[in-house]
């Protein structure tokens, strides 16, 4: 089973990003997804900067996947998507693209680039899997809100009909739950989105949104809304192995990610931590979606 590092969802200063991926080169992850997937206004790193990091990680032996924007709104967004994918095509070094919108699927098809369908592409059934495989999809990310039972059905279909397709499950991190035209971080500062002063830089772990009873409900990240609790499927790893899941996604968090990667690395080698709820990070854990329950819930099947 391969460990992947999902795209960095937060907005960090360029020196922090370089430092982060410098460390990642030595971590036991097989695949690294790179690029800005949330907001087109975040330009600490230019396209060339991302591609340079991709070159470095590729040289360090990592599989590199270039991730694309999730919510495109303008012709300028579409132009920069085209530009990015053409640059990858020109490099001709077999990097995959993570398509996070059907715009990217279409451009990949036109450029004959193989792609991974990100979790925000709604692949809820076998007919959708099949159709996207025909467009050049090599791997798909299981949509975050679906349950084990749907995954099992999809895996049965893949094994029978298209065993080359790889399956990736979002196994750790704050779940990306929604995207909006509005920037909630700018709104919090009473700033208009197009003059946002890049306030997201002040929140390297996102901006917590709590209920009036102090329950951390969501994490605001610019135009994106993430879960308040941290999704964690480490205990389900053996089950996922059995289902033929090929890749486990760990989504970057601001602090403590190395320990998380190490724990998952041990777990995939059969050294599962005890059944006690894991305290990997200092926020609540959740895993409800896996069990067909509300995603924010933490289910302990052993109790």
């Amino acid at each position: 089973m391969k460990l992947t590092l999902g795209p960095l969802l937060y907005f960090w200063p360029i020196k922090d990003v370089h430092q982060f991926y410098g460390q990642v080169a030595d971590w036991p992850v097989d695949t690294v997804y790179l690029g800005e997937t949330v907001c087109s206004r975040r330009r600490e790193l230019k396209q060339a900067d991302w591609l340079a990091i991709a070159d470095a990680l590729s040289a360090a032996g990592k599989e590199v996947v270039i991730a694309t924007q999730t919510l495109l709104e303008s012709t300028a967004d579409l132009r920069s998507l085209n530009k990015l994918l053409e640059a990858v095509k020109d490099k001709n070094n077999n990097w995959l693209i993570e398509a996070n919108d059907l715009s990217a699927v279409q451009v990949c098809k036109e450029l004959e680039l193989p792609f991974v369908a990100g979790a925000a592409i709604n692949i809820y059934n076998a007919a959708t899997l099949q159709k996207l495989a025909e467009q050049g999809m090599q791997r798909w990310c299981f949509p975050v809100e679906l349950s084990r039972s749907t995954l099992a059905d999809q895996q049965a279909f893949i094994q029978q009909n298209n065993p080359k397709i790889e399956t990736e499950v979002f196994a750790f991190g704050h779940l990306p739950l929604a995207w909006s035209a509005r920037c909630f971080t700018a709104r919090h500062h009473n700033l208009p989105k197009d003059r946002c002063q890049f306030v997201c830089l002040d929140y390297p772990a996102g901006l917590p949104l709590k209920t009036q009873e102090d329950q951390q409900l969501f994490t605001l990240n610019g135009i994106q809304t993430l879960s308040g609790a941290c999704h964690n499927l480490i205990q389900q790893l053996p089950d996922m192995q059995q289902l033929g899941v090929s890749h486990l996604r760990l989504s970057p968090i601001y602090q403590g990610l190395k320990e998380v990667v190490d724990k998952f690395d041990l777990a995939r080698q059969g050294q599962l931590p005890s059944s006690d709820p894991l305290k990997l990070v200092e926020v609540d854990s959740c895993n409800g979606y896996w069990f067909g329950e509300p995603g924010g819930q933490q289910i302990n099947p052993n109790l």
Partner: peptide, 8 residues
């Protein structure tokens, strides 16, 4: 692409 409702 909004999964907020099923989160709760």
């Amino acid at each position: 692409r909004c999964y907020l409702s099923s989160y709760l």
